[in-house]
Design a protein around this nucleic acid. Sequence first.
DNA 1: ATTATCTATAGATCTATAGATAATGC
DNA 2: ATTATCTATAGATCTATAGATAATGC
Lengths: 237, 237
Amino acid sequence: MSQYALATATRPGRPRVVPRLANARAPRDEILHAAAELFVNRGFAATSTRDIAEKVGIRQASPYYHFAGKPGILAELLELSVRPSLEKVERIELACPADVPEAALDLLALIDVEALATVPHNLGKLYRMPDVRSSEVFAEFQPALQELTAAYGRLGADIVSSTVAATVSMDQLGGLLVQAVEAVTRIRSRGGEVTSVQGRAIAATCLRICGVPEARIVRATVTADGLLLRFAEERPA
Amino acid sequence: MSQYALATATRPGRPRVVPRLANARAPRDEILHAAAELFVNRGFAATSTRDIAEKVGIRQASPYYHFAGKPGILAELLELSVRPSLEKVERIELACPADVPEAALDLLALIDVEALATVPHNLGKLYRMPDVRSSEVFAEFQPALQELTAAYGRLGADIVSSTVAATVSMDQLGGLLVQAVEAVTRIRSRGGEVTSVQGRAIAATCLRICGVPEARIVRATVTADGLLLRFAEERPA
DNA sequence: ATTATCTATAGATCTATAGATAATGC
DNA sequence: ATTATCTATAGATCTATAGATAATGC
């Protein structure tokens, strides 16, 4: 669902009941977008294949040409929203200078905030929806999500203060940090804009959760900001 | 769904296929509990009337004797989890001494945390589920929820620092505070215990969100703790 | 010929009602 | 007689497949 994929120069096939717009996305992407919006705003189980098709302007059965039904669509949406983050984790752990260990977590948080802030239709919410979590396709993605949480846990564990270490167990830490970053999806739900100032605030919150003193947070922020350009995709204005 | 309602001395009716336990709750409550667990953990739309009945040990059609179907059950669960909080709001606003204005918000947060921490099956999650929010019955409860958010907004607005007032608009403030309190449902989702220490931490977070300086937070905490006994139900050990 | 749709429909599932029935209470 | 269940089932909805068809590309 690359956000800007337009109608590919593909063979058109039989015309739709509701004609396609000239500047529409590729048919597959149209379906993904419609489904994403409905899944996030009405729920996965509450959305029928007919709902999706109607939103696109095609017949109920037509999406089956492109996808293996609702589960197939969900699988692709989950894939699209978890893979990019996961791919960056490794590069981040390598790129961060050993003398500013806090920068790694700060950078990961910044990048994830950016991803959650720009993914279409606030798709980051999918992972928290009970009907999604109890679906069969979700099971495939659970390992990937756990790996991401584990990465937060590792980077956090590297820098926790002794006071925090005494209070919060290390297998909780990753989850706590992920949750802090997911504040982005809640801001978007409320219709809020997620500015880069807010992104930095959320990243700083992650360091505070680990008990990093403010002076080091400032230093980490500067380092992470410097590294950010290497990782960030271009963000649409 | 009073958590301890046992089998009332009611006439039993035709026996179930799966016999009832001697110490079971009243039939109505059995259904509410089963539904609550399924709605929260699998989703509202993803749960069928058959799922609910099976969990109780009765036939698919039997719940209809007690409720107007799934929407009727949902309505009752929403009612049960919003009314108590709402009833307390007014009393709180009256009970708080004018010389410690921060105590009111602190107390409201403390009481709500307690409610969210003890409600069966983490029911507080219902309000955030898209299939619930787009259901027809939810519309009835939206005003009540908005009133609760508005109460947070009022109590917050009374005490915001000028710095915070400059950053966050007053109609966002209530939502921000509610969200801070709802951290409880996320802790419970992760299987965490919500201790009274955590409750106080969340209440203090609410004051920090409003920009209240630490010294005043300490004072508010003491005042609110003193008032808490008048409001809190007995909490099961 | 290939593609992307369409129409039609079978089968599964879900909801909700009507009416029967197995207990108890009076 | 009353209550709380049961059985049976109609009707709605949903999923997913088979096969037809209307366009374009070669």
